[in-house]
Design a protein around this nucleic acid. Structure first.
Lengths: 138, 138
DNA sequence: ATCCTACATTGGACATTGTCTAAGTCAAGA
DNA sequence: TCTTGACTTAGACAATGTCCAATGTAGGAT
């Protein structure tokens, strides 16, 4: 059993076939599926799983901090299981491929006091955009 | 006539009443309306303007670089007319208010070479999140 | 000033993404 | 094994965005 499933059990989650399948689909590096993509892949393993369950499960995983919601293009949200290592995203402007990246400093530190307008800052999310090697050479 | 309308005319745009009204709605500082909000405000001045025209005009303004598309919450996109001064966004996690802010350095510089995966970088967009003064004190 | 016509607008159908509900199902503790 | 409350399901509904054929009009041409 994956660490994720163990953590879910520790939180009192009922481990249904549907939740197992969603967790399996989200296992891996540089995974950034939309809800529909998760549903499509989940359906391959469990044909009767419903869209609503996929949305529910993704929402729950996000709310407990196991998965991060990413919206790089204003279209469908994407779900990133790499929640336990702080990171940002690098996106190809042409093909849309996404890589997790780690900036060398804290992006929050770049915002001077006079530009904070009295806000209590929490986090900064950065999206780097450019062309990936294959799009750049094409 | 505003500078924006003059620039549009210089590009060969037909200056219709609808385009004038959309341009007027987008005039100002810290303006970040959704398409529907633009439509609602435009309707006050020109009741017969259609949703399609608002979407068309916003899309055109974005494609010629006069307006920036911002999606801070994964819901509707917002349209920011402050396109001629590079800036980032500061968002209240509770009430959603958005301010334009200017970081002190170039966020692109924070991404080390080994984290660029061969991409040709273009830009970095940063969203700072926290609580605004009134939400923090409530 | 009037006419022409290519470009712009309109209303509504359609597409995509996400949310909600009522009824049925099942995991896991007793 | 039984029971029960949590979970899942199908499908309706909501929010946002796109597309198209019919109609209208800005601005150059006359």
């Amino acid at each position: 059993m994956s660490d994720l499933l163990q953590r879910l059990r520790d939180r009192g989650w009922r481990l249904t076939a549907q939740r197992r399948v969603v967790a399996e689909v989200l296992d891996g590096e540089h995974v950034h599926y939309t809800a529909d993509e998760v549903h499509a892949r989940a359906t391959e393993k469990l044909p009767e799983i419903s869209r609503a369950t996929v949305y529910n499960t993704l929402g729950e995983l996000v709310s407990i901090g196991e998965v991060i919601e990413v919206s790089t293009d204003g279209r469908a949200k994407r779900y990133d299981p790499n929640a336990h290592h702080s990171h940002q995203h690098l996106v190809c402007s042409r093909c849309g491929v996404i890589r997790d990246v780690r900036p060398s400093g804290d992006p929050l530190a770049l915002l001077p006091e006079r530009e904070r307008y009295g806000f209590t800052l929490d986090e900064a999310t950065v999206t780097y955009r450019g062309l990936c090697p294959s799009c750049a050479s094409a």
